[in-house]
Amino acid sequence: MAMNQVKMVVTGPFSSGKTEFISSISEIDVVKTERTISSDAEREVKSQTTVAMDFGRITVDDDLVLYLFGTPGQRRFDFMWEILAEGMLGFVVMVDSTKPETFREAKSILETFRAYAPTPFVVAANKQDLTDAWSIEDLRIALRIEDGIKLLPCVANDKESVKNVLLELLYSILEEMDTSASTAG
């Protein structure tokens, strides 16, 4: 029997914590495709960034594997996004809660991915453990996220926090399936 492979995409602005998120939960060392950053501005934020995609894996059983793909944050690599989005089960939009200068970009990425496929998604407000993080309530208004969309507190280097985000996304996927089934029935 062929192995069932499903994928989820972790997206968000540059340096929002996507690679860290995947690293926290992946059973394999994340296949990082990070390169030394070329732009001075970006270099000051972090020394390496994701160029094509990050790649993590969670094996469920012999027949089922979940792959987590992290998108490159910089806009100049957005040609990769659509390729990564193809066939995804759902996606997580990471937002750095301490960097309001990235909120506009986060919203734009969210809308772009939403347009790629009508799959469920959640927004993960990263770095909620830091004192200068914007609160979830304020982020919801700032990012203009509708009430029906899950906006979850997150700490990308904390496995339990990452598990919670992924579980919430899976619950949303289940709900969506139930809704589709009842509509079809």
Binding site: N4, V6, I25, I58, T59, V60, D61, L64, L66, L89, K159, K163, L166, L167, L170, Y171, I173, L174, M177
Partner: peptide, 14 residues
């Protein structure tokens, strides 16, 4: 749906 439920169980167990 069974696939999603399997994923949920697996992530819970991590």
């Amino acid at each position: 749906e069974t696939v999603v439920r399997k994923l949920i169980d697996r992530i819970r167990s991590l």
